[in-house]
């Protein structure tokens, strides 16, 4: 038993003794060591999926247990944690996970991308550029990029071992042959350091270029599938494509309706039953920062009047 666990009747301790005694950051120390060993091997072989003993967590698999276990294994008292879900800081998954670490690890939390040392994310990379020293933790539902092409783990493992990736190129080719372009828009496969094909987790392909040579360390945790993989800073990440069909990211015909950003990833929101819609930044912190800086989108007035967003202070 470590000093961080409260003993019954131990009122000299700072932890509220009426609450159950968890180890710091929920996981026990042996589990953290196991995850830490897997993380170091993952960093040494970028893009390779390291099997690990994923634990039962106090929420259902598929809700980010892989990312939570990675964060729990790395977080310490010096860290500031940001959690986003589809870019937003204020959605259910993000709020719950942030609260989980506030409760079990006394974590300092923030919504500001620049202030965070650890950013746990579901399905987005923040718009603000990442900096050296930051760690991105991705929640990954399906770590195996070849799984939909080859359901057998024994086979996909050999395909990675021998770099037999023709099947993936054929899939992309068939897409082009049928539809004229690659129709994959999220979880778009990437080649890491010229060796392993990796699933970038279901981020939109808009975010793929941000991974290439990023100064931040990127860690991926898949709880249900029991895999951890990693991208060290300054690692080559190439989205698969063909010479005559180069990789392209999404673009929109109109800017964000709230902050007028034309270079961020936009969500399409249906706003009434007449088919009207608006496009807004998926990264809520980015959008708020821009509004605070005085950028105004075409529908900001309406949204403020109906109480959907707060009037910016400036």
């Amino acid at each position: 038993m470590t000093m961080h666990q409260a003993l019954p009747g131990d009122d000299t301790h700072s932890v509220d003794s009426t609450r159950p005694a968890y180890n710091y950051a929920y996981l026990d120390e042996q589990t953290k060591r196991m995850i830490r060993r897997a993380l170091l091997k993952a960093v040494a072989v970028p893009g390779y999926q390291v099997p690990f003993g994923s634990r039962e967590m106090p929420l259902a698999r598929g809700w980010g247990t892989g990312g939570i276990q990675v964060t729990a294994a790395i977080i310490g008292p010096d860290d500031t944690l940001k959690v986003i879900d589809q870019g937003a800081d204020d959605t259910t998954n993000a709020v719950s996970i942030r609260r989980f670490f506030e409760k079990t690890a006394d974590a300092r939390t923030t919504e500001a991308t620049e202030q965070a040392t650890i950013i746990q994310t579901r399905h987005r990379i923040p718009e603000a550029p990442l900096t050296a020293g930051q760690i991105m933790v991705y929640q990954v539902p399906q770590p195996e990029p070849l799984r939909k092409l080859e359901p057998r783990e024994a086979e996909t493992r050999k395909m990675h071992a021998w770099a037999e990736y023709g099947l993936m190129q054929v899939k992309l080719y068939e897409n082009i042959a049928r539809f004229g372009e690659v129709t994959t828009t999220y979880d778009y496969p990437v080649m890491i350091n010229g060796r392993y094909i990796m699933a970038p987790s279901p981020i939109p392909k808009f975010d793929n270029p941000k991974m290439h040579m990023s100064p931040a360390l990127q860690l991926f945790g898949a709880g249900r599938e029991k895999r951890i993989y990693a991208l060290p800073p300054h690692t080559s990440v190439r989205s698969l494509d063909f010479e005559d069909h180069p990789f392209r990211i999404q673009s929109w015909t109109q800017p964000c309706a709230l902050c007028a950003a034309s270079d961020s990833y936009l969500d399409e929101v249906v706003i009434d039953d007449q088919g009207s819609r608006m496009f807004v930044c998926s990264d809520s912190h980015h959008c708020e920062t821009r509004r605070a800086d005085g950028h105004r989108g075409t529908m900001l007035g309406d949204a403020t009047a109906s109480g959907l967003v707060e009037e910016s202070k400036s």
Binding site: T2, M3, H4, N23, Y24, E29, K32, R33, R36, L39, L40, V43, A44, A73, I74, I75, G76, P77, L217, A230, P232, P233
Partner: peptide, 20 residues
């Protein structure tokens, strides 16, 4: 003397060392 935080701090140094 403090296994939880000393090992966490040491691990982050090792992680940073292998990542960079």
């Amino acid at each position: 003397s403090d296994p939880v935080f000393q090992s966490q701090g040491a691990f982050r140094a090792l992680l940073a060392a292998l990542a960079e």
